[in-house]
Every structure is written in C-alpha cells, then in structure tokens.
C-alpha cells in the first residue's frame, strides 16, 4: 500500500472536525431548545453567540437576538461558515476529495445526509420542532461517525481522522465550559451556595454534554458545581472530558510513531505533553475557578498549536525541496544495504 498523501491526511482530519463540530452544535442547540419558553432564555441564546465569538457577525445580519434567528443562524444559514449546514457542506466536500479512500456506503451516507439537511426549512426550526430537528442532526452526525468507524480501513489516515475528532471535541468542551461557567460566575461565583436555579443550570450543562447519566453514576448525591466542572474536564473515562480527549490524541500520535515510523510525530507530541501537564496541574488546583477563563484560553491555544504542528509535520505546509534530498539519500542507502545483504 502506498504512503498516504498529505492532502488526504489533512482532509480526513478536517472531515472529522466538521462532523464533530456539527454534532456538538446540534447538541448545544437542542438543550437550549428544551428551554425555549424560559424567561431568562434570551440571554441563554445570546450566550451561544459568545460561545463561538459570533455576536458581532450575528447582530450585523440579524439584529435583535431571538431563539428562531439564532437557530437559523447556526443551522441552515449557508452565509454563516460555522452553521451546521456549512460544516456539513465542508465535511462533504472533504469526503468528496477522500472518495478514493472511503467506503461507498460512507460517501453515500454523507451525501444523503447533506441533501436532507439542505432541505430543512424555517418551519423545522420553530418552537415546536427545533428540538426534534437538532436531535435528528446530532443522530445523523453520530451515524456518519458510526459508518466511518465501521468501514474505514485502519491505515495511517484513520489516525488523522481520530486526531481531528479528539482535537475538535476537546476544543468544544473547553469552549462550552468556559462560556457556561462565566455565565453562572456572573451571578454568584463558583463556590457560593447554589440556588435552585443554579441546580437547573448545572443539570442543563451536563445535558449539553449528554453527560448527566454518567455523572450521576459516578457522583451520586447533591449536584456540586465544582464536581460537575471537574467531571467534564478531568474524568478519565467520560468521552468528552479534556483529559480523555488528550489521552486519545496521545494514543493516536503513538500509533503514528510506532506503527508508521513517522519521526515527525515528535514535535506534535511535545505540544500535547505540555497540554497534558497543564491539565494535571489544573486538576489539582483548588483555585482553578479564579483563573478558569485563562485556563480554557490556554487549552484552546494549545489545541491550535497542535493543529498547526500537524500541518507542518504531515499536511505539507512546510518546505518540500529539502525533503526530496533526504528521500534521495534514503533510497541510496536502502539500495546499498540491499546490495550488501
């Protein structure tokens, strides 16, 4: 089998990121939709905009924040490059480029899913239907990942797909926590006695991660904000926690190093290790809430660094002319050793 082209590795990486991003967005909107009628809701819908740093772009085009408008902005608006429809479009275009590698059923499923998405109308986003629509989008994304998991050949490309998935997931977790925790800290700060409304808030937060049941199994009893935040960030086994995601990223890089002899993994690995140290330190930090935003900023920046490093090491964002010489020398030494043996 010939070595994976850099362009394909990059497309697999971004394919995963776009699908994961769509799923995450659908989940967040779904939880929001459940509380459509709520009084404080306006603010919650606005908080989604700050989660993705989209407030200015939104206001420019839509004006006043309403549930319907935010849903439209994030689901069906093709003018918004980070809407679910735009993400799925980008995922599909990456998949199109990847068609020589992916299974027919995977392409076919993505193709059908995108075409279904495209036919969503404003009616599908009204109060009565929004939750169901989000639910079905999230399921569709899950299914695309399922087909991928079930049919994609486990070559080096699979590792790049996984890297994309785990990096995006870590990023989404960090962003969502950052915004949500800032929101509640505005009221009372993390370690003050929580009110009934707060309790609802933490439950809601767990639901946006589909983490409610896992949390309850682990931490029976009262809902403690710190415990919730720690669970979502540092639990080893919860598949959306930062700790879990970073662990998976390390595994994938190990695979690429050990299984495919890709020496240049080293530079990415260093970046990931630094992030890992920061996480370990944060997990032990009693006063993390005081530097919560700074911490999440650091996480997101490190993830961006890792992505950049992948680009330099594997996706061909570096200088190729020097590398040809290396390859030439390698071939020579290989031919020599063959002649000797």
């Amino acid at each position: 089998m010939s070595m994976l082209l850099s362009r394909y590795a990059e497309a697999l990486f971004w394919f995963a990121r776009y699908i994961e991003r769509s799923a995450s967005l659908a989940r967040i909107l779904n939880v929001q939709a459940g509380f459509w009628q709520d009084h404080a809701n306006q603010e919650n819908w606005a908080s989604i905009l700050s989660l993705y740093v989209d407030t200015d772009r939104f206001t420019e085009r839509y004006g006043q924040v309403t549930a319907q408008k935010v849903a439209k902005f994030y689901i069906t608006d093709r003018e918004n490059p980070s809407s679910i429809l735009s993400c799925l479009w980008a995922a599909r275009e990456n998949a199109r480029l990847l068609r020589p590698l992916i299974s027919v059923s995977m392409w076919s499923y993505i193709n059908v899913s995108y075409n279904e998405m495209k036919s969503l109308s404003d009616r599908d986003l009204d109060a009565a239907r929004l939750s169901r629509t989000c639910e079905s989008i999230a399921r569709t994304c899950d299914a695309i990942m399922g087909v991928t998991e079930g049919t994609y050949y486990r070559d080096a490309g699979w590792r790049f797909y996984q890297l994309g998935l785990w990096i995006e997931r870590a990023d989404q977790t960090s962003r969502l926590l950052d915004v949500k925790v800032a929101q509640v800290a505005n009221y009372n700060g993390l370690d003050q006695t929580e009110t009934v409304a707060d309790l609802e808030f933490w439950k809601l937060l767990l639901h946006s991660f589909e983490a409610y049941h896992a949390f309850q199994r682990n931490r029976p009893g009262r809902m403690d904000p710190k415990k919730v935040a720690n669970f979502l960030m540092f639990n080893q086994s919860f598949p959306r926690s930062l700790t879990h995601c970073i662990g998976e990223i390390q595994d994938m890089l190990n695979d690429l190093y050990m299984g495919y002899q890709l020496r240049r993994v080293a530079r990415c690995y260093e970046e990931v290790e630094m992030l890992q140290y920061e996480l370990e330190a944060a997990a032990k930090d009693q006063h993390l809430h005081l530097r919560f935003h700074g911490f999440n900023d650091m996480v997101q920046n490190r993830l961006m660094e890792i992505t950049k490093q992948l680009g330099q090491s594997f996706f061909g964002h570096a200088d190729w002319s020097k590398e040809a010489e290396e390859c030439q020398n390698q071939t020579k030494s290989q031919t020599q050793s063959q002649t000797l043996s």
Partner: peptide
C-alpha cells in the same frame, strides 16, 4: 479505487533532480 492507487493533483507532486515525487505524511515518495 479500482486500481488501488492514489488520485493526485498537481499540487501533490513535485520534481527534484528530474525525478517526480508525491507529498505524503512520511515525506516525499517516488
């Protein structure tokens, strides 16, 4: 797909000393 070989675009290839290489995750390949 039917041959089991990569589809490349011009940007995936480059020449050096009159040889053609493709850009892969492990560096250039003839």
């Amino acid at each position: 797909r039917e041959m089991g070989v990569p589809v490349v675009e011009g940007s995936d290839l480059f020449c050096d000393e009159d040889r053609v290489y493709m850009k892969t995750i492990a560096g250039p390949r003839r």
